[in-house]
Design a protein around this nucleic acid. Structure first.
Lengths: 228, 228
DNA sequence: GGAATAGTGTCTGTCAGACAATATCTC
DNA sequence: GAGATATTGTCTGACAGACACTATTCC
């Protein structure tokens, strides 16, 4: 392999969640140069014998203390502009993870502090490397995928109400949706959600039915985003 | 950089076109091991100072003798399973290109022979490396994108008729579409296509109006694929 | 004129947006 | 009961599928 230009390959993660009406991203504060002290996407180098998805799952587990089963993980894209990392030629494979609100403090094994930050409160140029761009691409991918996949449920706990699911759409899209039309759409699309048979208790108002994520891989017809 | 595991990075291309009612892919016959004599996606190593999109454009130009302007090029995904390349740890960034039918023989600078092969006539396991999988992902991406983008026009020459555009959809999707409903949909969706003001001549039947690709980046509402 | 292809108009069913009405809880 | 939230139902307009019909060319 000495005949081919040597690259380093990293796996970086755009981990999104919905908490308290804010779309938030998991960021770590860098403890070492380059970009020491700056916020960055969690990630790290891919092992020479490690498969790419395995590296992403490993980094996710290391940074969130969470195994993958809940939520959703998919490849987002690969970023490799020369000069994007001052340490050398580093190509990063970025992954998009959608998780329910963990609320519990993020127990990363890394010494560096990690925290959830609302996407709306980040300013361009605030993140290390080209992570602004990667984050923007991840958010846009998530917004688009809510339209034609049942992936919004990945932001919810295993059992959720229609209102919780609607809050996900409203938060990620930054719009308001009519609760009645949304309810009809969600419960009327085959395979989107499945009724659990139980209802919430103790909240204000009429108890809401609980649902689980359904088996449909795609939404037909899609959930339409207002405007556009 | 000696502290990080060394990878080789390649750029591979899924170049699709529509010719004579067949969705076809540009393949090269490998002249050297590994997989000598087998068909493979065109591609090659990324230079140590070369940006990833530049490498894709360069490979496309080398293999097709064509500058990019016509058609469409986007990143498809990155494949890096250990063992996918017997030469060592090679991660490949795959790109999807959609081009009009060049018809002219492919004038690649590579000595290896290159040719267009109908996607439908390839059998699993026929391609080198994991290129079967990459090709399948590319075809699926193209099929999906025809639904919600005006990208079908990337398969057409700069000026085209509604019937030509319909033939693209029918070929890529493998379905038949009602010419009258299709015409209404295409001409009625703002920004999909723009009339040139001239018509075809010399063909059998009533002359058809010519159109150019319109400015809309997305189709709203989408073009619906029959069944599903 | 006949065959072929382009384009328009009509009917109907599906579905989204607007919103009234009802159900069932907490306080 | 008042307030809040969930759920059902109704009306209407947009649009896709089916398909009759007209327009314009080549032969």
């Amino acid at each position: 392999m000495t005949e081919y230009p040597p690259f380093a390959v990293t796996a970086d993660l755009v981990v999104l969640t919905v908490r308290a009406t804010e779309l938030s991203v998991l960021l770590v504060r860098r403890g070492v140069p380059p970009y020491q002290g700056r916020w960055a996407l969690p990630g790290g180098f891919v092992g020479i014998d490690e498969d790419l998805p395995d590296a992403a799952v490993r980094e996710l587990a290391e940074e969130t203390g969470l195994a993958e089963p809940a939520g959703h993980l998919e490849q987002l894209g690969t970023y490799g502009r020369p000069g994007r990392d001052p340490r050398g030629r580093v190509v990063t494979v970025a992954w998009l993870a959608l998780l329910p609100d963990l609320s519990a403090p993020v127990a990363g094994t890394d010494a560096a502090s990690a925290d959830w930050l609302p996407v709306s409160r980040l300013t361009p140029g605030q993140l290390a490397f080209d992570h602004d761009r990667i984050l923007a691409d991840g958010v846009e991918r998530a917004r688009a995928k809510l339209e034609y996949t049942p992936l919004a449920a990945a932001f919810c706990p295993p059992e959720f109400t229609v209102a919780q699911l609607r809050a996900v759409y409203e938060t990620v899209w930054g719009t308001r949706l009519d609760p009645r039309n949304f309810h009809r759409k969600v419960t009327g699309t085959p395979g989107f959600v499945e009724p659990v048979g139980r209802a919430t208790e103790g909240d204000r108002g009429r108890p809401a039915q609980l649902f689980r994520r359904g088996p449909a891989p795609l939404l037909h017809p899609p959930m339409l985003r207002p405007d556009r």
